[in-house]
Design a protein around this nucleic acid. Structure first.
Lengths: 202, 202
DNA sequence: CTTACAATAGAACACCGTGCTACAGTGGAG
DNA sequence: CTCCACTGTAGCACGGTGTTCTATTGTAAG
């Protein structure tokens, strides 16, 4: 019996490891993602990482997979609204919320922070599915006649890009250039996307 | 004292080093930015970096500074158009061109790829100046009555964010989710930003 | 031409972190 | 009570890090 040895319950160890990787990626960037750092953050010995994942990249795979799944689920939940315009706006909010609350996973999904990293095809499919949900919702909006006509995929790219940009400005230290963006700004932003930045002739 | 007759003009070497850093940052990410890699890429011995820059971070400082200056200059050039709407659209194109052609500097300016890096206040001021140019141009557009009324800085943030988002989708491997975005898409994107995504009642 | 100097390249320094594995305890499931 | 999967400790083998020392060389000034 060695009093210096501890055994931690294995229940949530795997999850703790993935969480630790996410937190590190968030706070200190990709270069901080070492086995030792992840293990320490997860309150686990370095070996613990290898007990639950084959190697280092498997941890990232799981993080990406989790992110892709939850992102897709969040968008799907918003898209299930009956009113297509409500659904559309909800997707915008879900996108922003995911980016803010699951920052590391969002970066992994859309910002390619780790040069060599390639997601598994299944996880990547979840991202494509999420975009398709957005396209479908836009299509429903077009059917109501409230949304402008045109190639739906193109429109989806444009609106997605706009929201993406807003969310990314929030992420970075854009506040040091101008004001800090917030909830009210996002609402106004969505309104302006709908109405356009050119004044509407009466 | 003819600077063009130096055996290997310092300015050229210094520039080669900064270029090398930019190329590496672009191609292999922040972790590839080592003194040795930069020196090799610039066809210079590792010591060459220290001959022209105090230390490693000074190279990044210069890269940021160069990027901030050129970015601001590019926006200023477009803003000098007399027609404010032409100027506005020109700024959009200049933004996108800079992001595509000076990818590493763009990332350094707006994506914080290197966790510990803090730009010098002077360089940062150039970025703020660039944004102010954009705000001023928007203000001119509002005076013509063609642009919607409202807080100009807010509008600037919104439009800037949208363009930022488009440019970033182009940057990342978004094409694996949907189509590859191109020049024509950007034109259509700008048009939609102006007109809005809700259909306009006749 | 001679001298002085700054830029050069090569090598080394001291250091630290990396991913990963071998192995011996250990505690819960059966 | 047994078993074995999971655990923590320690260590391996390796490579790269930023930086400095030193001798050398090309070049410009006197």
């Amino acid at each position: 019996m060695n009093p210096e040895r501890h055994r931690t319950p294995s229940s949530d160890v795997a999850r703790a490891i993935v969480d630790a990787a996410a937190a590190l990626l968030d706070e200190s960037g990709p270069s901080a993602l070492s086995i030792r750092a992840i293990a320490e953050r997860a309150q686990v010995a370095p070996m613990g990482v290898y007990n639950h994942f084959g190697d280092k990249s498997a941890v990232l795979d799981h993080l990406y997979q989790r992110g892709a799944h939850d992102f897709q689920a969040a968008l799907a939940a918003s898209a299930s609204e009956q009113d297509p315009l409500v659904a559309l706006r909800g997707i915008g909010h879900a996108y922003r919320r995911f980016a803010n609350e699951r920052s590391a996973e969002f970066a992994l999904l859309f910002l390619q922070p780790i040069p060599g990293f390639l997601p598994s095809p299944e996880s990547h499919a979840a991202v494509i599915r999420a975009f398709q949900i957005f396209v479908d919702t836009l299509s429903r909006c077009q059917e109501t006649g409230l949304l402008v006509n045109g190639d739906t995929v193109d429109l989806a790219n444009f609106i997605w890009a706009s929201i993406h940009g807003f969310v990314l400005l929030e992420r970075t230290s854009w506040s040091e250039v101008t004001k800090q963006l917030g909830d009210a700004d996002f609402e106004a932003f969505l309104n302006h996307l709908g109405d356009g930045f050119f004044s509407r002739p009466q």
